[in-house]
Design a binder for these strands. Structure first.
Lengths: 144, 144
DNA sequence: TTGTTATCCTATTGGATTAATGGGATACAA
DNA sequence: TTGTATCCCATTAATCCAATAGGATAACAA
């Protein structure tokens, strides 16, 4: 069970774009530089994020990317889905043994776990990640 | 993100063995039959469960397999580990970009999720699965 | 207009992993 | 000693993944 790199890079890319959303956007090549990714590989990632309707190109004097909606309206599962089919740890439907009644307790466990993971991915939003990031980089002052 | 078939079959195999642990054990070929698996493939699964010290062979008149310890002392993560390296959705250590401070918020999220999944796998025991199974097959009476 | 730069889009490659099969050695009971 | 089941190791075909590459298009600057 591993996360593929596109999903991982994709989240970081979304964070980068979110951090520049107040401005005129951020260039693909600047993302590549700051995230230490090849422009070509980022190409695909950006393309898939656009297909998923999570970001859009700003054209004009200096083009760039922006979020299509507020960061708090984008959950991590949205980003996950840009690079993966819906999460199915096990795919009961394709399994002929699902008709065997003694396998159901096992399958049920995996299905429950599956639902719990999806729930976690849906609860956390990009806005949360932005806040976490700002805390880590001390961009927020804490008043006690 | 998918679970491999060995882990899935492995849990079902462990359930089957747990259900026969009170008796003299269950034969590999009988597991194969009831779980609809090829004997050869089950061969590997049994072998890995033994290497993980989760089951042992009972030799004697009729050999068979039994759990090495009580079902409530075996968690699903134990079974998972018989077929997989420790769960790492992302492997921060191998990533040179982990030194980039702006990537940490993303990595932290995946690491937290990782820990939560492991926790779920550790909390559920084989005994729980046995109970679930018996409920599903109506082998337990409910007195209101 | 022409050159440059960035984005967009598709194809491909090498590598790793996985699911499953196969062959044959060993243990052991009838 | 023969049959059956387990044990152990090698192999294959398929799939998936990460990353690179080529080239088309579009915007803009000089």
């Amino acid at each position: 069970m591993k996360l593929n790199t596109k999903t991982r890079y994709g989240l970081r890319t979304m964070l980068e774009i979110a951090l520049h959303s107040g401005e005129r956007g951020i260039l693909q090549k600047d993302i590549a530089t700051s995230q230490n990714l090849s422009v070509k590989y980022l190409d695909q990632i950006i393309s898939e994020l656009k297909s998923a309707n999570l970001i859009r190109t700003i054209s004009g004097k200096k083009s760039g990317y922006k979020l299509t909606r507020e960061a708090k309206e984008i959950c991590i599962y949205d980003i996950y889905l840009a690079f993966n089919p819906p999460l199915h740890l096990v795919n009961c439907l394709n399994e002929q043994e699902c008709t065997l009644n003694n396998s159901c307790a096992s399958q049920n466990f995996w299905c429950t776990l599956n639902a719990e993971i999806i729930s976690k991915l849906q609860t956390k939003t990009l806005a949360d990640i932005v806040i976490d990031h700002k805390k880590l980089t001390n961009q927020i002052m804490f008043y006690i």
